[in-house]
Computed example of a mutant assay.
Amino acid sequence: MALPGFRKRRSANAANADGSAKGGASANNDAIIKQLTKTRRNAALVSSFCYLLAFVFLVLVEIGNTKGTKVLGDIYFFKLDLANIIPQSVPSLSLMNSIARTLGLHDFYQVGLWNFCEGYDDEGITYCSTPTNLWWFNPVEILKNELFAGASIPLPNQVNEILNYLHLASNIMFGFFLASTILDFLMIFIAPVVLYSRWWSMPVGIMSFINFILALVAAAIGTAMSLIFKYALTSQSDLNIQVETGTKMLAFSWIAVGFTFLSFIIHSGLCCCCTSRRDVRTGRKGSQSMPAGSMEEKSKTGSKLPSFGRDSTKS
């Protein structure tokens, strides 16, 4: 009767030893996996941080010029200065400009992504239009609405010809900036997925490339639109309109492009480089490093169980 009981106790002890051995081996394997995938994990975290920075700068682009505050009021694509709209050759220049103000014209108009703001040099921004989806800046319509009835300012045909292109470009820029902002926010949380498998690097890399193209095209359109307006209006000496490009708005947009490009480069590299968790577990990579610890544990636990069973049978 003692023999069966002895065999049961030995079997229970063997099970406990096997469980503890497996637990130790599993913990050791997890530590090895973390060590082998450290580079990939760091790269994924860097890409998430880049997406976060790009998102912050794109948010500044989105909310720029929406209010006449000191911070947001200084973020615009370009600014039309009409304070000296009467040409220098006209006598009594100061008197004529004061008359132009009484006709309804403001000293400056500045353009953002959602609206425009207007104001006077001595008062600052006095009014900002309501932010509107797919808004675009139409200087002809705005100036006509600003002037009192019966007053008008002749605009050259060169300005009128670019309005249709400006409308289309503004809508594309608006949509691309908004889409890139949303994608940047989502990619902050999606990017770490590439740590688990190399297969995730391909779709994530495609999303990163699309995000980069959206930000690049939007920033390029905003820059080109500002420069075209500056060239088209300042080249007309009869209008005497000065155009100032918004360095802050353009800088924020191109900084966001830079961070999205860096994230795209990281994800492109992760498609073929850096060991993932799946690579380690399937033995495709890191097989020489991982079994050195895990196989040793398996051999120890595996040799004890058969010998212990045989010894209990002999006894």
Rank of each mutant, 00 (worst) to 15 (best):
L147R: 06
C128P: 14
Y231H: 05
K8W: 14
H267Y: 07
G112H: 04
M96C: 10
D107F: 04
N164T: 08
T132K: 13
A43N: 11
F261G: 11
A31R: 13
E161L: 12
E296Y: 12
I266Y: 04
K8C: 04
L80P: 02
K314W: 03
I75Y: 07
C273K: 12
F264T: 02
L93S: 10
P306L: 09
A27L: 07
A218I: 07
F189Y: 03
A27P: 03
S180K: 12
C272W: 10
K38H: 13
G119T: 03
L80R: 06
V257K: 15
Y120K: 02
A15I: 11
A27Q: 09
W135D: 02
R7Y: 11
M290Q: 00
K144W: 02
T245C: 09
T275P: 08
F212C: 02
D184S: 14
I213S: 11
W136S: 06
L58K: 00
G175S: 10
V111T: 05
S47D: 06
I153A: 03
L155K: 03
L166M: 12
N97M: 09
I213R: 15
G286A: 12
F148Q: 14
G269Y: 04
I266M: 03
F252S: 02
I206R: 04
F177N: 11
A256H: 07
S268A: 02
S276W: 13
S289H: 15
L178G: 01
T69F: 01
S129H: 06
G302H: 15
K67R: 10
F137H: 12
K298Q: 09
W199S: 07
F252Q: 05
D311E: 08
F176S: 09
N164G: 07
G23M: 05
T126H: 06
Y76A: 00
T37A: 06
N138M: 09
I33F: 12
A15G: 06
I210Y: 15
S287F: 15
N211P: 11
T39P: 04
S47L: 13
K304W: 09
R7Q: 15
N28Y: 03
I75T: 02
T126V: 05
G283S: 10
F55Y: 10
L178M: 07
S98Q: 02
L195Q: 03
A100Y: 11
V194Q: 02
M207Y: 10
T66C: 12
T181E: 05
A21Q: 11
G283L: 13
P154R: 08
S226I: 01
N240M: 02
G302S: 15
M225I: 07
N115V: 05
A17Y: 12
C273E: 04
L178A: 04
D279A: 15
N29C: 03
P192N: 00
I86K: 08
L186M: 07
I125G: 01
Q288V: 02
